[in-house]
Design a binder for these strands. Structure first.
Length: 425
RNA sequence: GGAGAGAUGGCUGAGUCUGGUUGAAAGCGCUCGACUCGAAAUCGAGUAGGCGGGUUAGAAGCCUGCCUCGGGGGUUCGAAUCCCCCUCUCUCCGCCA
């Protein structure tokens, strides 16, 4: 959510941002509602002021045992008027609030301008894609042959885009989770959180999933609870409606969670393999920082996520998203894309974003810079560190051998009882 | 799920029965000042948030109004206080990993 006062004072900046994102939004409508609202508010406040002072007089007269019926009549009339105006005011406020929740964040000045992902820019390429003396196979074939991935039974018990991990597959998934959590907690200074996987509506609004993207979410309608699409949602909302003391910042949190996505708009895309699932595991990094530090923190966070890929020995590149590809709440995003030999291309395994105060304003997360100072909104950031399923798929493909076996990256072996290779079945 | 108790400022906690300068006593904490070589102790002052209006190029600051005592609605000239609904917390019972 943007600051309404900022929109009022700098409509041209907001208009420019909307255009760069390719978003159609009626800003003039919002501004005229806001102007009407403020005029009405002033009137209502004046009426309330006279009501308050007159009521006080009634109290004084009654205490002095004098007649107050004349004033009481007058105030009754004023109250009626207030009620009438307030109905109108509520309607305007509702409209303004709803509109405000639908305006995306303003892209940072360093973000490349462009209509879609074709305008994204590669920031750096790290590592060499492996050479194969044979035709590398896609991970779903490797996994099924090794009897560690079961797509057929996943579809049977839950539906398409659900997969069963088995044997070394299940253990490799668990190893990846533990490896990432250990790395970020022990070496990068993050505090681990294990959050609820179901959250309420206010929480989903806080991070920006609602109201705009409800169709992409799984909803437990009986309780009106949503399955989280990422741990970003519960973890960012940990401090919703709070004023944090300035000295606790920056806060670094890392959380493992299962993630649930309806993938409503993705019918027919990535139907094979682990790339696009309704349920997947992810280790997520979340930061709360002072405004002046957030862009430096974004670089550090991105580097923390990259470290996972470097240690796993996977070739990857870092891409900065253009204005047309940027997510609704983000001001700047780096995607980490890992090499997939079978597809001969890079695919996203992490998305690291700075939301500035966009989520903090929605969720009302503030801090007091100094004891006694006025509260300010924090900046929030997050990034996958990393998506587990896609990482597992990348390992299967990049470490596959001609005989169908898969070598385990050395850093993971301690998590797999020293296993060096998943043997062919 | 059943029965009961409760939710007040950064925290503890009065006020609710008996509606009226109580946006809220007191204590703690915090900030600033005095004392001190410095600290502790002591003393003094200050210390909730939000939304408007004025001043300003704007911000800060200052002046001013409105709202908020878990959330929403109602009664009343006037609600922390009375009534209704919701949420959460605690205690007891039931159930359960």
């Amino acid at each position: 959510m943007l600051d309404l006062r900022f929109i009022r004072n700098h409509p041209e900046v907001v208009r420019d941002a909307l255009e760069k994102r390719g978003v159609d939004f009626d800003l003039d409508q919002l501004l005229s509602w806001d102007e009407k609202r403020r005029k009405l508010l002033t009137q209502v406040e004046q009426l309330k002021h006279s009501r308050n002072t007159l009521s006080e007089e009634v109290g004084k007269l009654k205490a002095a045992k004098q007649d107050a019926s004349e004033i009481i009549q007058k105030v009754k009339q004023i109250s009626g008027q207030i009620k009438e105006f307030e109905r109108e005011l509520d309607e305007l406020e509702r409209k303004v609030k709803e509109a405000l929740l639908l305006i995306p964040n303003i892209p940072h000045s360093s973000v490349p301008v462009g209509p879609d992902e074709s305008a994204n820019e590669v920031v750096r390429v790290v590592g060499e894609p492996p050479e194969f003396s044979f035709q590398p196979r896609p991970h779903w074939e490797i996994g099924e042959d090794l009897d560690i991935l079961d797509f057929v039974r996943g579809a049977k018990i839950a539906g398409s885009r659900f997969t069963v991990l088995k044997g070394w597959g299940a253990q490799l998934e668990r190893a990846l989770i533990n490896f990432m959590l250990d790395l970020h907690t022990r070496e990068h200074g993050y505090t681990e959180i294990f959050p609820p996987f179901l959250v309420n509506r206010e929480t989903m609004v806080g991070t920006g999933q609602l109201p705009k993207f409800e169709d992409d979410m799984f909803l437990c309608s009986r309780e009106d609870l949503f399955l989280i699409p990422t741990a970003e949602v519960p973890v960012t909302n940990l401090y919703r409606e709070e004023i944090l003391p300035g000295d606790v910042l920056p806060i670094y949190h890392v959380a493992y969670s299962a993630c649930f996505r309806a993938e409503a708009g993705a019918a027919g895309r990535d139907t094979r393999g682990l790339i696009r699932q309704h349920q997947f595991n992810k280790v997520e990094l979340v930061k709360f920082t002072r405004p002046e530090d957030s862009y430096e923190e974004l670089e550090k966070l991105t580097n923390d996520a990259e470290e996972v890929l470097r240690r796993l020995g996977l070739a990857y590149r870092v891409v900065v998203l253009s204005t047309g590809d940027l997510g609704f709440s983000a001001a700047k995003t780096y995607d980490l894309e890992v090499w997939f030999p079978s597809a001969n291309c890079y695919r996203e395994v992490s998305s690291c974003s700075n939301f500035e105060d966009f989520q903090a304003r929605r969720a009302n997360i503030r801090f007091r810079p100094q004891p006694g100072a006025k509260p300010q909104f924090v900046h929030t950031l997050n990034g996958s560190g990393l998506a587990i399923g896609r990482t597992l798929a990348a390992i299967l493909e990049n470490y596959q051998q001609e005989d169908g076996s898969v070598v385990i990256p050395p850093v993971l072996r301690p998590y797999l009882h020293g296993l060096e290779k998943i043997p062919p079945s």
